[in-house]
Amino acid sequence: MFKDALFLLTEYKEYFIKGTMNTLLFSFSGTAIGIIIGLCTGIIRTAPESKNKVIFVLQKIVNAIIYCYVELFRGTPMMVQSMVIYWGYAFATGGKTLDLTLSAIMIIAINTGAYMTEIVRGGIISVDKGQFEAASAIGMNHTQTMTKIIIPQVLRNILPSTSNELLNNIKDSSVLNVIGATELFFNGGLIGRKKYMIFQSYLVVCIIYLIITLIVTNILRKFEKILEGNEDFLIVPSQTISQVKNDER
């Protein structure tokens, strides 16, 4: 069994490598764009109501659109979304099809964006109200407060959920096989059918997925540690507090 798997792996090395690369490309760039979408929509949804009537109405409309977007993409399977978007485009243009790589990244991005909207919104809402008040009380406007104070805290707080999105996307990008995107699962199937070694081929695929997610999980954990920052800080010697214990470093 392992001999077959090893045979497939060496014989069809390029297919597995290409599939792995595509899976990484789709999931990483899709997640990255999705995070940006989610940041924008999350920030818009939590912005205070404008006093300007025109902007206020605009805000309401945009918020309604974001609401529909989030519910639509969280409430349907990504596999179905892939088909609807890919074939919907073909239908609307009378047979032209989208570039597969582009479609794959776009589908993951839009899907992730919907989840990230809610994650970012929750992250902003859960920042201590005192942070907003202190910033206002000192003269910072909403944009300044968001960029300098709130978003840095939100990014740190939502890191675990964001990591989770990335890991899910690495695995769930396998559904893109339905539109024929040549990611790992698709290529694995291709080889399996060619050689009548379906199980052995998917075994290889399975192990590659596992290796990727293990590596990514570990890197993300290290990253979280770094962001948490040092437990200690350096005391700067000064005239005013020279009696402070220096052995604390």
Binding site: D128, G130, Q131, E133, A134, A135, S136, A137, I138, G139, M140, K148, I149, P152, Q153, R156, F233
Partner: peptide, 28 residues
């Protein structure tokens, strides 16, 4: 500008959690 001229100190301090002591005073 007014809020920077008539500014407030809170019961719960509300230092900016993402900034160190120096940046808390510097960034605003």
């Amino acid at each position: 500008k007014y809020r920077s001229k008539v500014t407030m100190v809170f019961q719960s301090f509300n230092l900016f959690k993402n900034l160190n002591v120096l940046d808390n005073c510097k960034i605003p």
